[in-house]
């Protein structure tokens, strides 16, 4: 049956004399000598380990697929969750703020100052929470969105944002120095959020600074191959000892009384920069202003 034939890497289950089963790969050539005697040349290779490795890989693949499915369903759940937050969490806040305002309005001659103050606090808290919800939703959205990468004129974006900041707080005098023609490859919507936060922070933390200056530009460097963008201010600054907390959600380095904020802004910025495969870091000294540097892409 095997006459002048060969067997190539056939896998068979064999048993050793000691009774152990093992998978083997057989390679054999059958020859017939002139006297009619049959000769078998061959190799029997114990492939139990390879078989075992294959099985492990298959199992791993299955686990991975299961994980991917789980992740997808978690993602969907998260999406449904933030959708519901977006819809359902604001209505009660609107009621808190609205009815407090109506009380302040309709009962103003019957409420003493203390009562009015307390109602104002309810309103302020409701509005703070509404801001928190907006910022959190934005943070979670950034994780979910796909980047649309295009050339973006950052100088133009920065100028537009400064104009908006000036409109909101015209009493705050700031000299803004924006370098011309700074461009980047990235997602315009997300890079806008980065600059809104960094310039917004610079604006906020120079509130008590005489002759406030905010700068945006590219750091010229001969050694660096990647472009380093920066936003610098000469405001309140922060203690570098807490620099590692800067980009974590809900971490604030100033009290809400001093400088209000939700503590989500820089966490959002960090996620956007990470999504662009970039880096962000800061340098500061208390009372000496702060400078935020970031790169986009490797």
């Amino acid at each position: 049956m095997l006459l002048d034939k060969s067997v190539n890497h056939d896998e068979v289950l064999l048993r050793t004399l000691a009774g152990r089963n093992f998978y083997a790969s057989i390679q054999t050539v059958v020859k017939q000598k002139s006297d009619g005697q049959l000769l078998l040349y061959g190799i029997i290779e114990d492939i139990s380990e390879r078989k075992h490795a294959e099985q492990v890989i298959n199992e791993l693949n299955e686990t991975l697929m299961k994980r991917a499915q789980e992740l997808e369903s978690v993602n969907k759940e998260l999406e449904a969750f933030s959708y519901s937050v977006s819809h359902d969490l604001r209505a009660p806040l609107r009621a808190l703020d609205g009815f407090s305002r109506i009380l302040l309005d309709e009962y103003q001659d019957r409420l003493d100052d203390k009562a009015k103050d307390r109602l104002s606090r309810i309103r302020k808290a409701a509005q703070t929470m509404s801001g928190l919800i907006d910022d959190l939703l934005q943070l979670s959205r950034i994780t979910r969105v796909e980047l649309t990468v295009k050339p973006v004129n950052l100088s133009q974006l920065a100028t537009d944002i400064i104009v908006e900041l000036q409109k909101e707080a015209s009493e705050h005098q700031v000299s803004c120095i924006i370098q011309d023609n700074v461009t980047a490859l990235g997602d315009a919507k997300l890079l806008r959020i980065v600059l809104v936060n960094l310039l917004g922070n610079a604006w906020k933390f120079t509130r008590n600074t005489d002759q406030a200056v905010i700068e945006f530009g590219v750091r010229s460097s001969e050694t660096e191959s990647t472009t380093i963008y920066y936003v610098r201010d000469n405001g309140a600054g922060f203690d570098m000892a807490y620099a590692d907390k800067l980009f974590k959600a809900f971490q604030r380095l100033h009290s809400a009384n001093e400088f209000p904020g939700t503590g989500i802004g820089l966490a959002t910025v960090y996620r956007i920069i990470l999504k662009h495969s970039g880096r962000i870091w800061a340098q500061s000294e208390i009372g000496q202003g702060a400078c935020f540097y970031f790169t986009l892409g490797k």
Binding site: R90, L93, R94, D97, G98, S100, R101, I102, R123, A126, Q127, S130
Partner: peptide, 9 residues
């Protein structure tokens, strides 16, 4: 969008 701030509303 309905604002939370009633004055805005």
């Amino acid at each position: 969008r309905k604002p939370v701030d009633f004055e805005e509303f």
